[in-house]
């Protein structure tokens, strides 16, 4: 009897280890779709940030923390991921506030157009990288599409098991750890695909932002208020009909910002002032900014953050400066490397 119990215990332990290894092997490493790796990368740098940028692709491809540091001494991080829905941003913010209390949180408002869960793939990219906490649980529950199950998040092996026949060398190479793909949450794009013609936006019948989305925005504001953090709203520049920012949405956000005394910056009409040239500063014909456009926007926005929101210049903090100087080096190295690859 004792022998049987011992064998069972050993077998269960061994099986658990084996399943753990298999799980680590089959979960995507997001080397080809790096936006899926962004959420997890935050934890390696968590703490010591004065500004947190939260939102979807319009943040992680438009704001360069390295430039904010270089130009203004602002210590910042971008917590964004592909099609990051507003409630996911809310729970990521809740999660981040466990690690640090920044002076300001900047939320990009484009994601407010979605009021319901959208895509399983993007859900996984945003949520899988979060450390387990009540924020992650709530984010999963709020985000799941009909086909999804909570158990799949608990044991990602159950979701990604079919990748076993589709593994690449990267899956083995990065089974336990993978190098960062971002620069403090900024995902660099060095390509240039100019926007050659001004596209006309498609008509939408109802230009009202969904109630659920606005509720989460309000929850985000209250959370910031409770934590003594200033909430700032922004809308990144874009010039594509696919990501059009409609007048009705704009009015709603302006009204909200006025009512709640929140600063809101829509950079679309400020493109000329920022110096964005849509023939050189976009990598996908006006949908997103490339690194050249993102640097211009970061310099412009950094100035606002310092002047209008009194974000501190931390370059005198030796320890922080050492950390950021290393990050700055890494940023320019990556830029050089990517530019080389583009050529």
């Amino acid at each position: 009897m004792k022998k049987r119990i011992l064998i069972a215990v050993c077998a269960i332990l061994l099986l658990s280890v084996l399943l753990g290894l298999l799980q680590a092997l089959v979960v995507p490493k997001y080397r080809e779709n790096p936006e899926g790796a962004l959420t997890e990368e935050y934890y390696a740098q968590a703490g010591g940030h004065d500004v947190l940028f939260i939102g979807d692709c319009e943040v992680y491809e438009s704001i360069v923390p390295a430039i904010l540091w270089e130009e203004y001494g602002i210590s910042s991080y971008v917590r964004g991921s592909g099609q990051q829905l507003v409630w996911q941003s809310y729970y990521l913010l809740e999660d981040s506030l466990r690690y640090e209390k920044p002076q300001a949180v900047v939320f990009n408002v484009l994601a407010l157009k979605y009021g319901t869960p959208q895509s399983e793939a993007f859900n996984r990219m945003t949520i899988d990288g979060m450390k387990w906490s009540s924020s992650k649980v709530n984010s999963i529950r709020a985000s799941m599409t009909e086909e999804e199950s909570f158990v799949d998040y608990l044991f990602p092996l159950l979701r990604f098991h079919s990748r076993i026949t589709d593994l690449s060398a990267d899956d083995f190479r990065y089974i336990f750890d993978a190098p960062a793909v971002s620069q403090s949450g900024y995902l660099m794009q060095t390509g240039i695909a100019p926007m050659t013609e001004v596209q006309r936006p498609p008509r939408t019948l109802d230009e009202t932002l969904p109630e659920t989305a606005m509720d989460y925005l309000e929850k985000m504001r209250v959370l910031c208020e409770k934590n003594g953090v200033e909430l700032i709203l922004m809308k990144a520049p874009t010039n594509s009909w696919a990501y059009w920012w409609y007048d009705g949405w704009e009015e709603q956000i302006v009204d909200y910002a006025e009512e709640k005394q929140v600063s809101y910056y829509n950079f679309i009409p400020l493109c000329d002032e920022i110096g964005i040239d849509w023939t050189t500063d976009t990598y996908d014909e006006g949908v997103h900014l490339n690194v050249y456009g993102a640097e211009k926007l970061s310099k412009y926005f950094g100035n606002i953050l310092v002047k209008d929101h009194a974000i501190s210049d931390r370059r005198s903090d030796a320890e922080l400066a050492a950390r950021w100087n290393a990050l700055l080096c890494s940023y320019y190295e990556q830029k050089k490397e990517k530019e080389g690859a583009e050529e």
Partner: peptide
């Protein structure tokens, strides 16, 4: 778990 046709 690995080869079953189940899930998303």
């Amino acid at each position: 778990l690995l080869f079953g046709a189940y899930g998303v």
